[in-house]
Design a protein around this nucleic acid. Structure first.
Lengths: 320, 320
DNA sequence: TTAAATTATGGAACGCGTTTCAGAGCAAGA
DNA sequence: TCTTGCTCTGAAACGCGTTCCATAATTTAA
């Protein structure tokens, strides 16, 4: 394979000039530019990107950390990131953590080693101290409320949106409201729990831990939720489900068990995934593709630190 | 940041020795090894991976081409690949093509530039001639039957599995069988169509192009299929649906429209995704995670070319 | 006309780890 | 005693593009 030196030789110029032509720098005469272009074409020259990376310290690679790659929530998020990456000539390095902390650290280590230019963490596991540590090596972008820190993020105010949803259900006459979440920990889950507790306090309702369902990620997780509900003496009359997939699973199971929706149980999903539309699930729309887009743009902007809030929209359908 | 030279200086050895220690090469005395380790620890030395890449010509990056990243089929496939990548200390570069050929070419170009060590194409768009061209630059692994070529693959024999499914439906008394596919072209779609046509010939049934539904990828695509079926004078009595997602969508819509499954319409899905289990959809199980695993292992083995067939399993449930 | 600015070009340093090769020292076998 | 054959070590070459800096040749502005 030919290298830049060969091209320089062939074109009768210096390697500097070749480099300038390749990178569209000014101050190259038309003839030399032409000569270089010809030489490049003749031997079908391809620069050694690893050499470029070594030289520039940049890789045009952005790391993306997700817990699962087969979940529609992250699927859409990654889709948004990927679309924008395409536009900007960046490539993505995917890290699937299965919520294991050391997987996330591996990704952070790659940032430290400058194997990637920036890291987008779609769902953070490791502590703030660690993020803070690694933030000095390159941009880290999060998908959670980071206001008050020096880390960029695009986020949904889950306190606000959860409160909004709860009030909506309350206004529809529901007093006994339960909710389901993915993992128990994490900023977003915590904000939601706070919103829930504040809501209970506000309306003077007792807290019942049985009304909270954790580890609900997928369609199939709806099954055990319904099973659980059926065995409860005093089940909730409405459920705030933090994923349309799970809501769809619950809805499907309820139909099977002849539990009438929304009469016996009201359901409210999150995300407004296509499945929510098809199954007429009332939900809070989160423009995930848009969120992904913004996350990416923050990732490649290593001068500014910004926190962008994304608004959610209540979509009324037939499950409440 | 310290480099290998600094470490060598600190430890009072040559860079070669430092390199040997880092890479666990033999023939380094215990004392020098120790001295190097100490120096590395003191300054928290991290090798410049870009330099390693330039030097070795390897990147420990594997490209993965998928049309969509938010589809459960590819989600599971990527999950399998990602899991195995983790085990082997490789990272993935994700290419989302949206079925645009030049996106795929970009991925192939990265292989050519040695920015990635190998490329796994989960759903190929571009022609064989192009694949052949780029195969000389590094391993390309496909997820379709490549027997008779010099390209590795892990694949499902879709002719066989489709035939199997058709016969199963036939034996259940179905004479009018339709099917739905994702995209119209592609090896897998073609093999399925061949199987379908051969089946019709075998049982002397006429071919009706209205029995074929293309562009069915997601849950929501089930809606228009059902709409279509309702408007048909002579609708099929069974549908072979090449994705559980679509089958679930069809099932859901049929329930809404009071079309009885399997009495009025039998449904058979593909993949055996969790949703198929929950919704009791009869399906052909494809062990996608396992397929992903094998694809990855083929990708990092650049000595052997192999074509691995994966068997599918018929899972009988309640939609046939 | 002179000073300042712009355009053009190339040499050489820089980023940095891996690996080949040559050689020294020492032990085991003939 | 001599020959192999390890073990250990380091100099130097290699992979290769980018960019700083110096220089020369023109223009433009004053």
């Amino acid at each position: 394979m030919a290298n830049i030196k060969d091209i320089a030789m062939m074109a009768g110029v210096s390697v500097t000039t070749v480099s300038r032509v390749i990178n569209n720098h000014p101050y190259v005469s038309a003839e030399k530019k032409e000569a270089v272009r010809r030489a490049i074409k003749i031997v079908n020259y391809q620069r050694n990107i690893n050499a470029v990376h070594l030289s520039t310290g940049k890789t045009f690679l952005i790391g993306v950390v997700v817990p699962f790659s087969n979940h529609p929530y992250f699927g859409l998020l990654v889709e948004g990131i990927a679309n924008e990456a395409l536009q900007n000539n960046y490539k993505l390095v995917l890290f699937q953590t299965n919520y294991e902390e050391n997987r996330e650290i591996e990704a952070l280590t790659m940032l430290k080693h400058k194997q990637i230019d920036a890291l987008i963490i779609c769902s953070r596991i490791c502590g703030w101290d660690i993020i803070d540590d690694y933030a000095s090596y390159g941009p880290i972008i999060l998908c959670e409320d980071t206001r008050g820190t020096n880390v960029s993020s695009t986020f949904i105010d889950h306190y606000k949106s959860f409160s909004k949803a709860l009030e909506y259900l309350y206004n529809k006459g529901h007093q006994k409201i339960g909710y389901s979440l993915g993992r128990r920990t994490g900023t977003n889950s915590e904000k939601r729990e706070t919103a829930y507790r504040d809501f209970l306090v506000k309306f003077n309702h007792p807290f019942d831990s049985n009304y909270i369902f954790y580890e609900c990620f997928n369609f199939e997780d709806g099954e055990w939720v319904v099973q659980h509900l059926k065995n409860m003496r005093n089940p909730p009359s409405a459920l705030l489900v933090s994923s349309d997939q799970v809501a769809a699973g619950i809805l499907t199971c309820c139909k099977k068990q002849n539990i009438s929706i929304p009469n016996e149980l009201a359901l409210m999903g999150f995300d407004n995934q296509p499945i929510a539309k098809i199954m007429n699930i009332t939900t809070l729309e989160i423009p995930l593709v848009e969120v992904g887009r913004k996350l990416f743009l923050q990732a490649i902007d290593n001068t500014t630190i910004s926190q962008e809030e994304i608004a959610v929209k209540l979509i009324e359908r037939l499950t409440v």
